[in-house]
Each structure stands twice: as structure tokens, then as C-alpha cells.
């Protein structure tokens, strides 16, 4: 693969299951880093991942992984890892034996497979428990085994399908930390699918948003949150007067039940706020910058769809 070439690329990807359109003319590319693929259930995330893994043939369009056509190359799967959302672990085998076997199935020689399995189990925090049967593991430990099997053969790229599903808050935090560490310390690029915006926002560098099989947004996570940065102002009284004073100064204001919100402010807006508070005689209780959550991406996508007349 030539340097500078994206690790994954899909162009005009469409997938139909009978009358159901799972993916509709989707185009994106992914380079090094952690990329989140965000969408509600049925948005097409898993279908996109399966096409990229070469497990499904697209109806039209192309998907390439590490510079090779995903559907025509079984060999490329030796360099990618996949952590499915669903349960996929044997119950009577130990984690050490299972990861060793999975490493061999990925093409590693048996002696190296054993060494890699031990190293990977240490990485995911299961080294002490590695000889216990997986059937006796907790949900969090099973998720770690699933992550471990996706990393044991040292992939260049790993697909994680809902890796925090079923975890409690502490387990979720641990899993997100592990994913960040996997990329930052070992340079393994990650495509991380989730319907939990908070997970994506905290973990990913870039984001792809799918809705009803269509690509609705893509770009840097920071860019999205910057675009939606707001200042929230709460006053004890005279809220309508304050809004009027701000609008008189050319500041766009949204009046909410608990206060006022100013969209995408620059530095000068704070002077306007100070002057407007004095003019409106509004006692200030709280003023704080606020970043909107990625949930609003879906609202914005809906707005775009309704503007374009899409049901």
C-alpha cells in the first residue's frame, strides 16, 4: 500500500437486501487514527463493516481495505481485526487457548501464536485469568476477550462493532481507555461503530454519521463540536429584556426555558453580553460555554433531510 493512501475507502457503495436499502451511495475514506461510525440501529453500520471485511458483496460501488478490493481478497483479512457486537466466544475453552488458536487461524506460526496470545491478554487486562474457561467470565471480561482476539495477530486496522455494549459505566470507561491505548501506543487504526454518541465523542478523532443507509456527516470530531459551541446565560429576571438588548447588538440568541443560548460565539460577544446585562438590568446568575453533544448531529441530519424533501 502506498503511503498517504487511505487505509479504508468506499466509493458510491450501495447494498440492497431485497427491497431494503441498507447502504445508499455512500462514499468515505479513512486514514490513520480512531474513526467512529455513528448511527442508530439499522443505519447501515454493520453492513458497511461486513462489506469492508469482504463478507458481503456490495450491490454497486467499491470498498477497499489496505489498498485491496475487500470482496476479492481473503488474504487482506490477515491484516485486519474484527470485534463483533454479538456473543461469539466458546464457553469451555480458556482465553489463552482461544486466543492462541485465533492467532494461528490468522496465519501466525504456533509458537508465535502462543506468545502473542499471552501478550495480548496482558494488554486487555486478563493475564491473571487467562487459564479460566471463558464461560465463567463476566460480561466485561468477555468483551476484553473479544477485543483481544481482534488484536492477537497484530492487525493494521481493527473494526470494533459496539465494543461497549452491555458494559457498566466503569467497564465502559475501561474499554474506551483500552481502545485509545491500542491506537496511541501501538499505532493500530480503529473503526469504532456505536450508537452511543458519548463513546464516539470521547474516543474518536474522526466521525462518520450514517442514517437510513446514507452518509449524513463526516469529518474531525473536534470540528463538529467546535461548530456547535454555545454560551449559556442564566439570569434571575428580565430575560426578555436581555434577549432584546443582545439582538439590538447583532448577537443571535435562542431563548430557552432556563436561560439564553448564544450560538458559535467569538471573543467580542462577551463585551456585548456585559453591556446588554447592564442595559436590561438583568442579574446574572451563571454564564458558561457549552458544547453540544453529538446527538444533535442526528437532529441536524433530520433537518437537512426535511429541507430536501426526504421523508
Amino acid at each position: 500500500m502506498a503511503s498517504g493512501e487511505p487505509l479504508l475507502a468506499v466509493e458510491h457503495l450501495t447494498k440492497h437486501f431485497g427491497d431494503v436499502v441498507a447502504l445508499n451511495d455512500v462514499t468515505f475514506s479513512i486514514s490513520d487514527g480512531i474513526t467512529g461510525i455513528l448511527g442508530e440501529n439499522g443505519a447501515g453500520k454493520s453492513t458497511a463493516i461486513k462489506i469492508l471485511l469482504g463478507l458481503l458483496q456490495p450491490t454497486s460501488g467499491t470498498a477497499s481495505v489496505l489498498g485491496r478490493n475487500a470482496s476479492q481478497s481473503v488474504a487482506v483479512r490477515a491484516r485486519v481485526g474484527y470485534m463483533p457486537e454479538h456473543d461469539c466466544l466458546p464457553t469451555q475453552t480458556s482465553a489463552a487457548e482461544f486466543l492462541t488458536h485465533m492467532a494461528e487461524v490468522s496465519g501466525l506460526p504456533p509458537a508465535m501464536a502462543r506468545t502473542r496470545a499471552a501478550d495480548t491478554l496482558r494488554h486487555v487486562g486478563l493475564f491473571e485469568e487467562r487459564y479460566r474457561a471463558i464461560g465463567g467470565y463476566s460480561t466485561g471480561m468477555k468483551q476484553r476477550v473479544k477485543l483481544g482476539q481482534s488484536l492477537v495477530h497484530d492487525p493494521a486496522f481493527v473494526f470494533l462493532d459496539e465494543p461497549t455494549a452491555g458494559l457498566d459505566p466503569a467497564g465502559r470507561e475501561d474499554m474506551l481507555t483500552l481502545i485509545r491505548k491500542t491506537h496511541r501506543e501501538f499505532g493500530i487504526s480503529v473503526l469504532f461503530s456505536s450508537h452511543l454518541m458519548a463513546d464516539i465523542e470521547r474516543t474518536c478523532d474522526r466521525i462518520i454519521v450514517l442514517q437510513d443507509g446514507r452518509l449524513v456527516q463526516s469529518g474531525e470530531v473536534g470540528q463538529f463540536t467546535r461548530e456547535t459551541e454555545t454560551v449559556f446565560i442564566e439570569v434571575d429576571s428580565n430575560r426578555p429584556e436581555l434577549a432584546a438588548a443582545l439582538e439590538k447588538r447583532g448577537v443571535a440568541v435562542t431563548v430557552e426555558r432556563s436561560g439564553l443560548t448564544i450560538e458559535g460565539p467569538d471573543e467580542s460577544v462577551y463585551d456585548h453580553v456585559r453591556d446588554a446585562l447592564v442595559e436590561a438590568r438583568a442579574p446574572l446568575r451563571r454564564m458558561a460555554p457549552r458544547r453540544r453533544a453529538l446527538t444533535e448531529l442526528f437532529d441536524r441530519a433530520d433537518d437537512i433531510a426535511s429541507t430536501n424533501g426526504v421523508a
Binding site: 496465519g107 499471552a118 501478550d119 496482558r122
Partner: peptide, 17 residues
């Protein structure tokens, strides 16, 4: 037990699988 690290060894492909 030397912790996780990148693998630079031989990959034996589909035959090994």
C-alpha cells in the same frame, strides 16, 4: 511476558489457517 508489541514475524496465510 513482555507485553503487547507489534509483530514483525512471519505470516503463513491461508494454509496456516
Amino acid at each position: 511476558d513482555i507485553g503487547y508489541q507489534r509483530y514483525a514475524g512471519r505470516r503463513e496465510g491461508r494454509g496456516r489457517s
